[in-house]
């Protein structure tokens, strides 16, 4: 039987009001992608703690909001980073801001990558395009706690060499002990000496110790689909594969209905999912 909730006992955190935050710096990563470094707002008088994989609703004053993953180091919660692809009205407006300008933030929302579950295991990170941004907080965390994990394998693909994000950091990460960074591009240029082709092609260059590998995958849906199929072919259990999903979001907190993916709300049940939670839905069209 459906009972009336005890309405008087419900205490709601205020989730709908953007908090003002100040931009410290804008870094152009590529021609159309930039990172906002933001002085984190205080949340109920406390620091702004987030977990890798979570997102904020980023507000361009008077223009609107976009759901954007947090791409900074969670151990430095006073400085937030959002790496943003300039494609729509909000992301264009945000791209025009300068140091000292103000934005609004609501968050952090959503589920996180399984860092603790990965302790003692190899971690395979596979990213396509801007999909590396929500995984960067994971990479920072793994490196900071390097001894707690096995091998770190970072496979990253972009459209072209100039579309690769965080190029300096990719270089630095490749020098971390027991860490492999392999990149690929769809189209090379005259200076490119690396791999050409899709991310899944990179699996032939690594040997996964599959029983002890946790995979975290983020990129376009078709890239994630081919990647988890490749991981499964190589013996990684579905239970050890995590993906981060994107959908239209208006509220970010499970109330507006836009981000539904079958029974899941991407904003609150995701964006990070353990593959078996949503695998049956990904394989269907237009869910």
């Amino acid at each position: 039987m459906l009972e009336t909730p005890v309405l008087d006992e419900i205490k709601s955190p205020n989730s709908m009001a953007p908090l003002p935050a100040t931009i410290r710096r804008i870094i152009w990563e590529t021609d159309d992608t930039y990172t906002l470094l933001i002085d984190a707002p205080r949340l109920d008088g406390k620091e702004f703690p987030f977990r890798p994989g979570q997102f904020n609703m980023v507000y361009a004053f008077g223009i609107g909001e976009s759901a954007i993953s947090i791409s900074s180091d969670p151990s430095k919660s006073n400085l937030l980073a959002h790496t943003i692809h300039r494609v729509g009205t909000v992301t264009s407006a945000l791209s025009k801001l300068k140091r000292g300008d103000m934005i609004g933030l609501r968050g952090p929302f959503g589920t996180a990558w399984p860092i603790e579950e990965a302790v003692g295991k190899d971690v395979c990170i596979a990213a396509g395009g801007i999909g590396l941004a929500p995984l960067r907080p994971v990479i920072y965390t793994l490196i900071r706690r390097r001894s707690e994990f096995g091998r770190i394998i970072i496979l990253y693909g972009a459209r072209s060499p100039l579309d690769l994000l965080y190029r300096v950091e990719l270089e630095q990460w490749s020098k971390v002990p027991n860490t492999e960074v392999i990149t690929t591009v769809d189209r090379g240029d005259s200076s490119w000496k690396g791999h050409i082709g899709v991310v899944t092609g990179l699996f032939s260059y690594v040997k996964l110790d599959t029983p002890s590998t946790i995979a975290m995958v983020c990129g376009p849906e078709v890239m994630m689909k081919y990647t988890f199929e490749e991981l499964e072919r190589r013996g990684v259990s579905q239970e050890h594969i995590f993906i981060s999903m994107e959908r239209n979001m208006k509220c970010g907190v499970g109330l507006c209905g836009h981000c539904q993916f079958g029974p899941k709300f991407i904003c609150k049940d995701g964006p990070v999912f353990r593959l078996p939670q949503i695998r049956h839905l990904i394989e269907k069209k237009e869910i």
Partner: peptide
């Protein structure tokens, strides 16, 4: 109405305005 009570109050975040009107 009882169903919408759940929709707007069962998650971590609630629709405060709905709940105030409902109460």
């Amino acid at each position: 109405i009882l169903i919408q009570d759940r929709v707007f109050s069962s998650g971590e975040y609630h629709d405060d305005n709905y709940l105030a009107l409902r109460r």
